[in-house]
Design a protein around this nucleic acid. Structure first.
Lengths: 337, 337
DNA sequence: ATCGATTCCGCAATCGGTTGCGGGTTCGAT
DNA sequence: ATCGAACCCGCAACCGATTGCGGAATCGAT
């Protein structure tokens, strides 16, 4: 802050009035005569006066800053979320202070402390994978700061939340496969102890049930990374002749399995249809382009900020905590009929 | 900021001393007796006192905050850059205020103003595509605030800079093709009026020259998006029989051209080798995985912050502006021999 | 008892802006 | 001439910290 900004006192001195008068003139306080007001305003304009946000925050006890803790910025989903948050926040006159925990509990605690030190008005949090203990968040909450969890929520804490409807996304994907003629659908699943693994599996199961297709557990494989697909290729190829569709728990496994099949003479989607679950732009560059479920990170970001600001601007209203569910939507491309 | 944080005055009152004493005790000022110091320190610890960063910034005329303006957060390259910046900045005791211009000049101006209003200590900027006029940046610079450009630099402004060595990256990529046996190398290029188009083309040309391979302009195609590859597929296929290597100006065109060739019976890399220029994780999921030039966004981010902090902490030293060049490196995968 | 030197701590100003309250000036009315 | 009401504006406190300076208390020395 070497650059010496012009202050209200500078203006006051140069105009021979008091700082109070300058302050009031600039904000059209009725106590100030029109003459003085114009004088101050035009002069302030001329010298490009800009109020010091720090001083304002200190005085008003409000920083107009939102604190964000996110596991990793370098993730298409999270960067979309940030983008959505940023757009809405700036539109509403808030700025953002962004921290990444790098999936590290200790850094999450440090980050939270830094945000609180800066007196952010509210918190947006997606917890790290290594966070098993929530005292830091609990304390913040108890101290009264508004907080919204998104995507990686914390069950123990009663706050506003924004989450993806994984169940519904999986149901939509599987239903799409069924409606385009598939009957024997392989599900490449994440571990059942992870929420997304559980919810997407159940969505898959529900779609089958709705269409009276029996659920065959031998068609549900724990396999949620590209590497895992590669190491299970033999097993997948033995299954291949008896299936006509695949629902992958994420795009990279869907694309990987597609490649394995193609290398072995299967045509996509003529022989087997494939649907993924969106985690980025890779779906569009797959060959053929992958039909997938879009996660709407940008929208989730906007929604989280909307909830937070709503709470900030109605501090009195004891609104019940809301859980906003973002329903993902199917993007039909070329790997399904 | 509804939560009522505990202040130095609160502590003073409860301990029956003056705020000055508390302040000094907390920072081991010799004027304070050991007895008082311990009293204050243990009490402060007990009530979890944390200094108000706003008040400190106002008083010290230093915010320990770095302002960032980036075109788009949702871009693997830029989010890597941000990640690198964030990691180093927090490690050095700085926080970051992040704005995205969305490639919009007007928003860039607004963002800059917001950052200056918040009295950030320094600026990290990558200019938007639509920015043709630099008064806003010029004014900031004139007012004396340290600024570092990265990736999308502004030639007219004399500042520290961090850029990718596109020429060298292209030279390395092309050389790799030559050294693995290619002689007729197609270059899918960006427009020559863009810096990356020009520099990567020249790197390509230099590599050929170094190996005494004549440059054939009919093997340089202006074609830098996936869509463009698709619309030029016929032309590319007529060229295909006479070439043995392709250098794509970015990964998505490299992958696209690879797919076109594969669909027409060419084997990669047996018949034709392909090398891209890195813009994300898509290279690894291509089939076969794409050999490409890695852009090192994370490192660029760290380097930019390093330059900025260096200037902030040696305000007196009239260091000459530096241009830090990040040399990208080749990542050999399976599309080249 | 008085003085000088230490030791330890508080007053008050400052950073930049906001705001309750009180006061001076001008005016018309009586 | 006197009073009261508008009309304008400044004083000072405040937000939470820091810091130069001065001063009270204590001690030993003369």
């Amino acid at each position: 802050m070497k650059p010496t900004h012009i202050t209200i006192k500078d203006i006051a001195k140069m105009l021979g009035v008091s700082p109070s008068t300058v302050s009031r003139a600039l904000k059209d306080h009725p106590d100030i005569s029109e003459e003085t007001r114009n004088l101050v305003k035009t002069f302030a304009e001329k010298v490009k006066y800009r109020p010091n946000a720090l001083a304002l925050s200190l005085r008003k006890q409000k920083t107009n800053t939102l604190g964000l803790i996110v596991p990793e910025i370098v993730h298409h989903f999270f960067s979309s979320v940030i983008s959505g948050m940023e757009d809405l926040a700036y539109g509403e006159g808030y700025t953002m202070m962004i921290c990444q925990s790098n999936e590290n509990f200790y850094r999450e605690v440090i980050n939270l402390q830094a945000l609180l030190d800066h007196r952010v008005d509210g918190l947006l949090v997606s917890i790290s994978k290594t966070t098993r203990e929530f005292n830091h968040l609990h304390n913040a909450l108890d101290s009264g700061i508004p907080m919204v969890f998104f995507d990686r929520i914390c069950d123990e804490l009663d706050t506003d939340r924004v989450i993806t409807d994984d169940f519904e996304g999986a149901r939509i994907a599987t239903t799409h496969l069924i409606e385009t003629g598939c009957r024997k659908i392989l599900h490449l699943a994440a571990p059942r102890h992870l929420l997304i693994g559980k919810n997407r599996y159940e969505g898959y199961a529900q779609a089958l049930k709705n269409h009276k297709i029996p659920l065959d557990e031998s068609l549900v494989l724990k396999c949620d990374t590209r590497e895992e697909v590669m190491s299970m290729r033999q097993h997948i190829l033995t299954l291949a002749p008896q299936i006509d569709g695949i629902f992958g728990v994420n795009d990279s496994t869907a694309i990987a399995v597609m490649q394995v099949l193609q290398e072995n003479g299967y045509r996509i989607p003529q022989d087997i249809s494939v649907v993924g679950f969106g985690d980025g732009p890779i779906a569009t560059i797959a060959s053929p382009p992958l039909t997938t479920v879009e996660q709407k990170g940008y929208e989730m970001g906007r929604e989280a900020v909307r909830l937070l600001i709503q709470r900030l601007e109605n501090p009195s209203a004891m609104i019940n905590n809301q859980t906003k569910i973002i329903t993902p939507s199917l993007v039909r491309r070329k790997t399904s009929r």
